[in-house]
Design a protein around this nucleic acid. Structure first.
Lengths: 341, 341
DNA sequence: CTGAAAGCGCTAACAC
DNA sequence: GTGTTAGCGCTTTCAG
C-alpha cells in the first residue's frame, strides 16, 4: 500500500498546457489572471483532488502561519479556556495553533520552545512553568524579534506584551464584598508570595481593609501552598485562635472548598457562622453546596486577547508593548451571602 | 526593526569552507562524516545560533512531523485530558501536535480537516462533531492512506483504528452496583440513542437488569438531551409516576447533579430515599454534596493510546485496524452508597 | 570521507 | 494576461 502522490500545481499546469505560475496565481484569485482561466483552473484542480502544500508555500514565504502555545498543563480548566480562545481567533485569521505542555518543568519548556523555534512559529504565546527561573530560551524571541506574548505567569524582565489577571482588584473586590456583608474579622489564606498573582491578591485584601479603616491583623493571614490539605491545616489554625475570624478569603477555590468541608465537619454553618470566598471560579465552585463566592478569571477572553496581540505583533513588528490587566468579576454565591437580595 | 536573517547550513558551510551537504550530514550525526569535523560543525552552528528550519526539511522529506487533533471543544475536561495524553506521547516521539476545535459544527470541522490536509499532517486524531453527518472529508484519509484514528465519537462506516469507552460495560457496572446496594426500581435517564455512547449505556442497563432477573420497565426510562434542565424535567416526570423509582442511573454527571438538586428541593434524602449515579466522572462529581457515584472515563489514557496508534500507522501503513474498548471504572461515592463498608 | 547537483512544491520579480 | 526563471533551506543520490 503506497500513499498516492499528491497532485501539484505543475500537474494542473501540464493538464491545461499552461504554466505553473498561472496556476499558482489563479488559485490565489489573482485578478491578473482572466476570470475564465481562473475558473477553469480551479475546476480542474478540484477534479484532480488538488490540495495546496502549505509546507512548500510556507517555506517560500518564510512564514509558517502557525502560532505556538505553551501552557503548564493543557488539562486544566483555566488553561484549556485560554487555548480555546486562542484557537478561535487564530483559526479565523487563517493560522494553525500548535500546543505543548511544559508540565511545569523547566527542561521540557526549553525543549518545547526550541522545537517551536525550529518550526518557525510566527509567534509564541506562553504561560511559563512554575519551575522556570532562567529565561534565555525566551529572550531569543526578543533578540530575533519574533512575536511573543506572555499570559498569566509572565516574565518581568522580558519586554513584550503581557496579559495578566487583575488580581489586585480581585483581592479588593472580594474583601470589600465581605465587609459589606457585615463580616468583621476577615482572614486571608494566601499563596506563595513569590508569585505575583498571590502577592497581588493579598495586597488587594490589605488595601480594602485599610480603605475601610479596619486594622490589618497579621495573625489572620496564613501563607501556604493552597492545596486542599494546606487549606484544612490553615483553617484549623485560624479557628483555634483566641479570637477566630468570621470570614475567610481563600486564595483559591480549592482551599475554599476544603475549608468549607472542615468547617462543616466542625458543625459550623456557612455563611451564617463564617463566610467563605474563593478565587478563580473553578467549574466546581458553582455546583458544590453551599456554592462558593469567587472571582472569575476570563480565561477564554485572555486567550482571544493573546491571539489578537500576537497577530498585531506579526502585522507590525515595531509596535510598543503593553501589559494588559484583564478585569475580574466578583461572583457572589451562597458561601458569603448573609444579606439577602 | 527587521527580523535578523536566520543562519542556514550554507552560512555554516561558508564559514568553514566546506559544503552544505557535509554540514547537513554532520548535524544529523551521520557517521560518514569524521567525528572531528562533526564536532567542529556543531560547535560553530551553536555559536552562530543556528536553528534547523523544519519547514525546509519537512518539505524535502515530505513529512510534517505533525499530528493533528480535532475535538468538539478544547475546553472540556474529557477532551483536554485526551489532548494532554496525545501531546505527551507525540512530544516524546518528536512530533508536534496541532489542535483545533470544531465547536460541534460540521462546516468548521470540514474547514479544519482541509487545513490539516493542506498542512500535510502525518496523521489525524479526531472526535467528530455532533452535527457531522457526512464523512467525505474524512474518507479522503483512507483513500490517500493517511493515518487516521477516531476516538470517543467514531464513524462506523470508515475502517480505521478507533478508541471508544466501554460504555456497555459501564452501564452494566452502574446498574449492577445499584442492584447490589439494594435498590429495587432503577430508572434510567438516557441520552440520544443515535449516539453509540448513550445507546450502549442504556443497553448495559438493560443487560444488567436481565441478568438479575429484574423485568425491564419501559416507563422507567426517559430519553432526552441530558442537559441540566432536561435532567430536572425527567426526574420530575419519574417521581410523578404511580410507582416511582428508588434509584436513577443518569446518563451523565450533569443530569445526576441537577437530578439531585431537584430531589433535595423536594425534601428527599440521597441516597437514603433515592440513589443516584452519573457517568463520566466530571471533576465536580467528587466535590458536590453528596458526592456522585459515577463511571470514570480514562481520557488521558485514551489520548496516549490514540497517539500510539497514529504513530504505529505512520510506521507501518499496511497494518490492520482495530477498535479499542477502553476500560471504565466504577467510582462509588455517597450518592449511591446505602450499605456502608 | 566529502562535494556537486538536483529537487521537494510553491511564489514572485521580471519579462513580453 | 501569461510565461520564464530563480530560489526558500534542506536532503540525498551519485561521483570521486
Amino acid at each position: 500500500m503506497h500513499k498516492k502522490k499528491e497532485p501539484t500545481i505543475h500537474d494542473i499546469a501540464r493538464e491545461l498546457k499552461i504554466s505553473a505560475s498561472t496556476v499558482s496565481r489563479a488559485l490565489q484569485n489573482n485578478t491578473r489572471i482572466s476570470l475564465s482561466t481562473r475558473e477553469k483552473i480551479k475546476a480542474i484542480a478540484d477534479s484532480m483532488g488538488y490540495r495546496p502544500n502549505t509546507m512548500a508555500s510556507n517555506l517560500r514565504n518564510k512564514k509558517s502561519n502557525t502560532i505556538g502555545v505553551v501552557v503548564p498543563l493543557i488539562n486544566r480548566h483555566f488553561f484549556s479556556s485560554v487555548i480555546s480562545g486562542v484557537e478561535e481567533v487564530a483559526f479565523k485569521a487563517g493560522y494553525t495553533v500548535v500546543i505543548s505542555q511544559s508540565n511545569d518543568l523547566a527542561h521540557k519548556e526549553i525543549a518545547i520552545v526550541q522545537s517551536m523555534l525550529a518550526n518557525r512559529v510566527d509567534g509564541l504565546i506562553i504561560s511559563i512553568a512554575m519551575e522556570t527561573t532562567s529565561f534565555e530560551h525566551l529572550k531569543i524571541f526578543r533578540k530575533k524579534n519574533i512575536p511573543l506574548v506572555f499570559f498569566d505567569r509572565v516574565v518581568n524582565e522580558i519586554d513584550t506584551d503581557k496579559i495578566v489577571v487583575d488580581d489586585l482588584m480581585g483581592g479588593i473586590r472580594v474583601t470589600q464584598h465581605l465587609i459589606e456583608q457585615g463580616f468583621k474579622r476577615i482572614a486571608h489564606l494566601a499563596g506563595p508570595q513569590n508569585l505575583q498573582t498571590y502577592f497581588d491578591r493579598k495586597k488587594g485584601y490589605m488595601m480594602a481593609l485599610a480603605k475601610n479603616g479596619i486594622p490589618f491583623d497579621e495573625s489572620l493571614v496564613v501563607t501556604n501552598s493552597l492545596t486542599s490539605v494546606a487549606g484544612m491545616e490553615a483553617v484549623e489554625h485560624l479557628m483555634n485562635l483566641a479570637n477566630p475570624p468570621d470570614a475567610i478569603f481563600c486564595g483559591n477555590d480549592t482551599t475554599a472548598l476544603s475549608t468549607m468541608i472542615y468547617l462543616r465537619d466542625k458543625g459550623l454553618q456557612i455563611p451564617e457562622d463564617i463566610g467563605i470566598v474563593g478565587f478563580s471560579n473553578e467549574p466546581f465552585s458553582s455546583v458544590v453546596s453551599p456554592s462558593i463566592s469567587t472571582i472569575a478569571q476570563p480565561g477564554f477572553l485572555m486567550g482571544q486577547k493573546a491571539a489578537e496581540l500576537i497577530l498585531a505583533q506579526i502585522a507590525h513588528k515595531e509596535k510598543a508593548f503593553t501589559t494588559w490587566l484583564m478585569p475580574t468579576e466578583l461572583i457572589v454565591r451562597e458561601s458569603s451571602s448573609r444579606k439577602k437580595g
